[in-house]
Design a protein around this nucleic acid. Structure first.
Length: 497
DNA sequence: AAAAAAG
């Protein structure tokens, strides 16, 4: 018999947790055999209908810890029109969709119906599902309240409630909504609350709406685990220089799949546009996009059609994409919590990951806060000062990159914009299956595209600045120059902030 | 300061 460690409260095998055979089959099909610590402790007590506080974030197996027992609980009994039997509240639409996917995956051997109630998509299908009757509602608060107000939902049959990512709900100002929703549910119900942290308002919420809950706490993966290699990279403040630095990082490191976080939606758009222009297979996600497109971009990323996702903090928490090898913070996050969540998109399920954070001088305070929160000093990636020795790599990296850098830097200087036929083609793209880059359009063509047409209404000033940025990109970017920004560029081109 | 969520 194979030796195995038995932890108190952790039986280390799904079959020991009291789940049904159909469910175990689905779990096996999904490729899991051993429960994570939170699953091992949570599943039996949820099956016993106890209230629960789970102090954990995704990446710990949190979602399955409530989805699995819920499926077994709901397997008995039948749904009635407009009377859903359970409700899961999520802070963002993508997380709600992700939980719905989990229900489909694990519930494939059960006849359970569910409705995904999120904003940004038409209500028609959601209303239809509600009229037929659903076992599980998975919702963001806004759309749920909206449908409730229209009389499309009765919550009196909802005897199981999950409040997921409660601290995020707090950040987003959802707590009053949550409280109101709780009052519409029957008092005699089972409530599960999950949160990465337990700030006082969440504690209060739990005291008010949970009864004798069992509290389960698992370590926060991003702050404690060592499988994410973290690095700070000194960066210039100007956008185009930062983009150049980022491209060098993308090419130097063995980037397979990466999420690049920016602090602003406009930066997300600009960066993705620039990366695509430079031949990277990238996409974007942020709250100003149409919801179907948000989901479509995420789907492209999950399927590997694109390997870079430029994102706002909408994607910072809970998003579970397999095999993300790198997280880049194009902007250092303002809140240290966000840093922890962002880098937690890599190094998931025991894999290793790398997180780079570009740091401008103005970010010093934010970085100090991050190091304070995580209790560790993050290694600085030092960039050499002169082009002759400049190399963007860690000290242990081989010298092959150095040779390449020198070769490609040879004989450059002055404004030779446009003189290199290959300048738009990434010469050393880490992505082997990357599509060959399109040649850079002439400036005249750029102005003619749909994008610039729309930009026109912002006035000429902004458009010219933006074009200038791209033109500069062409010079110092993919033409093969790997050193720091030369003085002549910094001196002659100023892009005002 | 930003982003997120109901149009």
């Amino acid at each position: 018999m194979r030796a195995r460690t038995i932890y108190p409260d952790n039986l280390m095998n799904f079959a020991d947790l009291g789940l049904s055979d159909e469910l175990l089959a689905a779990v096996t099909d999904a490729g899991y055999s051993e429960p994570t610590p939170i699953q091992a402790s949570a599943i039996p007590s949820v099956l016993m209908m106890r209230d629960m506080i789970g102090i954990a974030q995704t990446g710990t197996g949190k979602t399955a810890s409530f989805v699995l027992p819920m499926i077994d609980i709901l397997a008995h009994g039948r749904s009635r029109a407009r009377m859903p039997r359970s409700l899961i509240l999520e802070p963002t639409r993508e997380l709600a969709a992700q939980v719905a996917e989990n229900f489909e995956k694990y519930g494939k051997n059960h006849k359970l119906s569910m409705a995904l109630l999120i904003g940004g998509v038409s209500m028609g299908d959601q209303v239809k599902a509600l009229e037929k009757g659903v076992d599980v509602l998975i919702a963001t608060p806004g759309r749920l309240m909206d449908l409730f107000g229209r009389g499309n939902i009765l919550l009196t049959g909802c005897s199981l409630l999950v409040i997921d990512e409660a601290d995020r709900m707090l950040d987003m100002g959802f707590i009053p909504d949550i409280e109101e929703i709780c009052t519409k549910l029957p008092a005699n119900r089972q409530t599960l609350l999950f949160s990465a942290t337990m700030p006082p308002p969440i504690k209060k919420l739990a005291d008010k709406f949970l009864t004798n809950p069992k509290t389960i706490e698992v370590a926060r993966p991003a702050t404690t685990n060592t499988n994410i290699k973290q690095m700070l990279v000194p960066a210039p403040a100007q956008g185009f220089k930062k983009r150049d630095l980022l491209r060098r990082l993308l090419r130097t490191d063995d980037v397979g799949t990466a999420i690049i976080f920016c602090n602003r939606k406009t930066t997300v758009r600009e960066l993705n546009k620039s990366l695509k222009k430079h031949g990277f297979r990238s996409g974007e996600i942020h709250g100003d996009m149409e919801q179907p497109q948000r989901l479509a971009e995420l789907d492209l990323f999950k399927r590997g059609e694109i390997n870079i996702l430029v994102a706002s903090d909408v994607a910072a928490r809970g998003l579970d994409v397999k095999g993300v090898s790198h997280v880049f913070n194009f902007d250092a996050p303002w809140h240290p919590d966000d840093y922890v969540h962002r880098i937690g998109r890599t190094g998931r399920a025991g894999a290793t990951g790398t997180a780079y954070t570009l740091v401008t001088p103005e970010d010093a305070e934010n970085v100090a806060n991050i190091e304070k929160l995580t209790g560790q000093t993050i290694e600085r990636l030092e960039l050499s000062a002169s082009p002759e020795t400049a190399e963007l790599e860690e000290p242990r990296t081989s010298s092959s990159d150095r040779a390449r850098g020198d070769r490609r830097r040879g004989g450059r200087g002055g404004d030779d914009r446009g003189s290199r036929p290959d300048r738009a083609v990434p010469e050393r793209n880490a992505f082997e299956d990357a599509k060959p880059a399109q040649p850079r359009p002439e400036r005249g063509e750029q102005r003619g595209d749909a994008e610039t047409g729309r930009r026109g209404r912002h006035g000429g000033d902004r458009r010219d600045r933006e074009d200038a940025a791209f033109a500069i990109d062409g010079v110092e970017g993919d033409g093969g120059w790997n050193g720091p920004i030369p003085a002549f560029l910094s001196a002659t081109i100023t892009i005002s902030a």
